[in-house]
Design a protein around this nucleic acid. Structure first.
Lengths: 208, 208
DNA sequence: TAGATTGTTAATCGATTAACAATC
DNA sequence: TAGATTGTTAATCGATTAACAATC
C-alpha cells in the first residue's frame, strides 16, 4: 500500500477518529487493532493496514496510543488551514446537515447556506447564515469555500454544481439523484437516499 | 456472473430504473448501453453486464426497449407483495426521507413514523402518521413492516435497531454513525453523512 | 452488405484477508 | 521466557473493464 489513501480508506479513517474521540473522553490509554476493529465493524487486519497508511504505530504489548492515533488521523484528514463548506438548499435535508455539523469539527465547518426562498434569506439556521442564490458565487469566493453540499431538487442540481465549480469549489457532496457533469479536478460524492432505501428493501430478509 | 445481484449491482439497477422512468415519459422507445451508461455515470460494459443480471435483452440495431427494461428491473427490484418501511425519528432528516419518498414507488412506501416527542405523536407528517415509541413493536407487526429507517441520535440507535429486529424487520437503513449489532439475517446499510462530508473535504482539490 | 451494438468470456484491477516473522 | 500483538508481504476475492464473436 503506497500512494495516497483510497476513497474507502479515508472513509474508515474518519470513522476511526470519531470512535477514538469518544474513547479519549472515557480516558483509555491504548487500543488494540482488534478492539478498534470491533467497534468500527471491520477486520483487525484492515485496521492495521489503515494505520500503516497514516504512519501510526503501536506496540505489541500496549496497542496504539489513543491520543497519538487521533493526532495522526487528524494530520491526515484535516487541511491545516481548515476547509469551509457551503450548503445549497435549506430544506429538511439541508437543515439536517447543518445540525449534524454544528461546530463538530474545528477544521471543517459549514460557513454559508443558500436558498431560493426569499423568506429564508437573511435568517440564521443552526448557527449558519442563509444567503440568496444570487449571492452564491461572491460568498463562495469571499469566504474561500472549497466544499459544496447540494441539497436542492434534481432539476436545479447541475446548475448549482456548475456555479459552485466556477466559484472555486473543488469537492461536492451531492444528494440529488442525478449524475453531475463536473470537471475531473473536482471530486464529488453522491448520496442517493432513495436508492439506498430501495436496496435495503431488496436485501431485507433475502440473506436469510 | 451468476448468483444473486451484488450490493453494487442492485444500487445501479435502482438508478437505471429511475433514469429510464424519466425517459419513458419523454416517449423514447429504445436505449443503447452507451446512452444509459452516460446518464448513469458508468461504463457501457457495466450496463450490459447488469442487463444480463436481470435477464433483459436488447437488439444490436435498436438497443434495449425502455418499457421492457423498466419492467425487467421492477421484477428484480420489487417484492411482488410490496415492502413497507417504518421511519424512526422524525427530525429534519426523517422529514427529508418522508418527503423524498412521498408516494414515489407503489411497491415501497413508508407506512409509519415514530418519535419520542409527545407533540409529534398523532400528527401526520408528509402523509405519514406519527406514533409514539411505545407503539413501535405493535405497529411494525400489525402493518407487516420489514424495513426500518433509523434517524435517531446515536445514543438511541442500537436500542431501536434491536426492537425493530425483534418485531420482524429484516432490513435497516441506518443514519446514526454507530456500528449496529444485529443478526446476520438482517441486512443493514449505513449512511454516515459526517463521514461523507469529511471525505469530500479530504479529496477536494487533491486530485488536481 | 457494412456497420454498429449486444451478450459473454477472459483479463485486469484494486481492495480485503490471511499469514507470519519481528517485537515488546 | 511465553504469549499476544504489530507491521508487512503474499494470497485471495470480487468487481470492473476489455475484447470480440454473434447478431440485427
Amino acid at each position: 500500500m503506497d500512494g495516497p489513501p483510497s476513497y474507502e480508506t479515508v472513509g474508515r479513517l474518519s470513522r476511526y477518529r470519531r470512535l477514538l474521540t469518544r474513547r479519549v473522553e472515557t480516558g483509555s490509554e491504548g487500543v488494540y487493532s482488534h478492539e478498534l476493529a470491533a467497534v468500527a465493524g471491520v477486520s483487525a487486519a484492515q485496521v492495521r493496514r489503515d494505520m500503516m497508511a497514516v504512519g501510526a504505530n503501536g506496540s505489541p504489548t500496549r496497542g496504539y496510543n489513543v491520543e497519538k492515533l487521533v493526532e495522526c488521523l487528524s494530520v491526515e484528514l484535516d487541511d491545516p488551514e481548515g476547509s469551509r463548506a457551503a450548503l445549497v438548499g435549506v430544506g429538511n435535508l439541508g437543515r439536517a446537515m447543518l445540525s449534524f455539523f454544528q461546530g463538530r469539527r474545528p477544521k471543517l465547518s459549514i460557513v454559508a447556506a443558500f436558498d431560493r426562498e426569499p423568506y429564508k434569506v437573511g435568517r440564521v439556521v443552526c448557527g449558519c447564515r442563509c444567503y440568496s442564490m444570487d449571492e452564491m458565487s461572491q460568498v463562495v469566493i469571499d469566504k474561500k469555500i472549497t466544499v459544496g453540499i447540494i441539497a436542492v431538487p434534481s432539476s436545479a442540481a447541475q446548475a448549482v454544481a456548475s456555479e459552485l465549480e466556477d466559484a472555486g469549489v473543488r469537492g461536492i457532496l451531492n444528494f440529488a439523484p442525478v449524475a453531475l457533469r463536473i470537471s475531473p479536478e473536482t471530486f464529488s460524492e453522491d448520496i442517493d437516499m432513495t436508492m439506498a432505501l430501495e436496496r435495503v428493501a431488496y436485501f431485507a430478509g433475502r440473506n436469510s
